[in-house]
Simulated assay, not measured.
Amino acid sequence: MKGYPPYFLGTLMLTVVVVFVTGLLLIPSLFTFRLDIDWFSDFPNSWRTPSATLHTGMSLLFLMLVGALWSIHMRSGWARKLQRVSGGLLVGSLLVLTLSALGIFYFGDEDWSMAASIIHLVLGGVMGLMFVWHWQKGRRLLMAR
């Protein structure tokens, strides 16, 4: 990526993968503690706290990296009318994902917190697919030049 240090793309990709994988590791906690469904009774409970801590910390790093993407990558792409749909969907989804993360912890009502958890889970999975779509579309545009 032009305009970024050589390690930026690797850091971004590693962050995305860690956030996604730790999010997957938190699914049993969602089912057990939010939805009262005991599908994952054999899942080791000792993974929950480290997974949640790593998920939260790497999510904050990801948000900082997105801020860095805003300065060059997003503004340049938007000005050149490149990938506006996939990029716009990613940014909009990230905003909803961030707000739902806050809602999980800070909504006072259990039902609202549970709804935020479900939205966060579904959107997190879909956002992983959107990221791959955006990435592949960008690679194709680069190869076409």
Results as ranks from 00 to 15, higher is better:
Arg139Trp: 14
Val122Gly: 02
Arg75Gln: 13
Val18Gln: 00
Leu25Lys: 04
Ser117Ile: 01
His134Asn: 10
Leu95Ser: 05
Thr15Ala: 06
Ser29Asp: 07
Ser29Val: 08
Leu63His: 01
Val122Gln: 03
Leu35Glu: 08
Met64Thr: 09
Leu65Gln: 03
Asn45His: 15
Pro50Ala: 09
Pro6Thr: 11
Ile118Leu: 12
Leu9Lys: 08
Leu89Val: 06
Leu123Ala: 05
Ser100Pro: 09
Pro28Ile: 02
Phe40Gly: 04
Gly138Val: 06
Leu9Glu: 09
Lys81Leu: 02
Phe107Leu: 04
Val18Ser: 09
Gln136Gly: 14
Ala52Tyr: 05
Ser46Cys: 09
Phe43Gly: 06
Phe107Tyr: 02
Trp70Ser: 09
Ser93Gln: 01
Met130His: 11
Val21Ile: 14
Ser59Glu: 10
Ala79Cys: 11
Leu26Asn: 02
Thr22Ile: 04
Val96Glu: 01
Asp36Ser: 15
Met74Ala: 12
Val18Cys: 01
Arg75Tyr: 07
Gly138Ile: 11
Gly67Glu: 05
Ala68Asp: 02
Val132Lys: 01
Gly57Cys: 12
Thr49Phe: 12
Gly103Arg: 00
Arg48Gly: 07
Trp78Val: 05
Phe107Glu: 05
Ile37Cys: 12
Met64Leu: 15
Tyr7Val: 12
Trp39Gly: 09
Ser76Met: 13
Tyr106Val: 09
Leu102Pro: 00
Ile104Gln: 04
Arg48Asp: 08
Gly10Arg: 02
Asp111Ala: 15
Leu65Ala: 11
Thr49Leu: 13
Met58Tyr: 10
Ile119Gly: 01
Phe62Leu: 15
